[in-house]
């Protein structure tokens, strides 16, 4: 379990500020939020790659300063924009990283290559690999030593759909309940991570929500409605309330998903919001509140 207490970290004009106590339970925790909300900074701090200006992080009740090697040995970290050394091959790079982490280099590297399906390109220079492959090499280095605290910043970006599903399945198995492992993932696609047990929403450097997915999609203040509508109805709609609009052949009518407190018109049925839709609704509510506060 990871406990974050009164954390502060300034980066120029931006400040990440987590007031009070934030508990990240073992299992999969999703960190969502807009660009520049502080997700990557938060992950850097959790991964001990950057020291906080104030506050502390407890890993199973221990601060980093109490046992630097012990805690660092349990951490696997993948930054969003990691570019592994292009002149190395994946095998050599993983041996290098395993060596730095104090692991058995060859065995760990082979296991990581196997896990991420990189055997076929193990001896090709990283610079010659596709972006997706390079992403997998980055992910493989985070998994070296089977760390019990895994911090991944957008691990699925640049991966094609089947590979995304494979990686999600693997990581879901890896951090399954009872494994004692914590996986904190920054993602813009919260619906892909079905097994996530916790969602943390960061907005402008502050925690706007933390809780289980069931709570995330409930209590939104608005309901999601779906139905078909004609072009005139779609044009009248507030674009902020529109979640999805797929025009039917001929473009006379469209399948619409939107959120509103009341049914928007005849023929609209209530629907369960997805996690992504819940994010859009929560963000819109926050923006509305801010606008009202400014007035």
């Amino acid at each position: 379990m990871i406990v974050v207490e009164d954390l502060r970290c300034a980066r120029g004009s931006f400040q990440l500020c987590i007031e009070g106590r934030l508990v990240l339970e073992p299992g999969i925790c999703l960190v969502v939020g807009a660009n520049g909300a502080g997700k990557s900074t938060f992950l850097e701090l959790l991964a001990t790659a950057t020291p906080p200006d104030r506050g502390r992080i407890l890993y199973d009740g221990r601060r980093l300063e109490e046992d630097v090697p012990g805690i660092r040995r349990r951490i696997g970290y993948l930054p969003a924009d990691l570019e592994p050394y292009g002149r190395m091959t994946p095998r050599r790079f993983l041996v290098y990283m395993a060596h730095l982490k104090g692991l058995e280099p060859e065995g760990e590297a082979e296991l990581a290559l196997e896990r991420l399906g990189l055997r076929a390109v193990a001896d090709v220079r990283i610079a010659r690999l596709s972006e997706g492959m390079r992403k997998r090499v980055g992910l493989a280095q985070a998994l070296l030593g089977s760390p019990s605290l895994l911090f991944l910043d957008e691990p699925l970006s640049q991966l094609e759909t089947p590979r995304r599903q494979e990686v999600i399945r693997f990581l879901t198995r890896y951090a399954r309940p009872g494994s004692g492992r914590s996986l904190v993932v920054v993602s813009h696609e919260p619906d892909e991570w079905e097994a996530a047990g916790q969602i943390v929403w960061l907005e402008a450097g502050r925690v706007a929500f933390s809780g289980p997915p069931a709570l995330w999609t409930a209590g939104l203040g608005s309901r999601v409605w779906c139905g078909t509508a004609d072009a005139a109805f779609v044009q009248r709609l507030d674009p902020e309330r529109l979640l999805r609009c797929a025009w039917l052949p001929g473009r006379a009518r469209a399948e619409v998903r939107l959120f509103a407190p009341e049914p928007p018109g005849e023929g609209f049925q209530p629907a369960e919001p997805t996690r992504e839709e819940a994010y859009v609704i929560r963000r819109a509510a926050l923006r509305r509140r801010r606008r009202e506060e400014r007035r």
């Binding site: 790659a49 950057t50 090697p69 970290y77 930054p79 924009d81 990283m97 730095l100 104090g102």
Partner: peptide
Amino acid sequence: GNRAMRLVESVTPF
């Protein structure tokens, strides 16, 4: 010039 690699290399027991 590779900040992300520097970050990853710094999260080691040594």
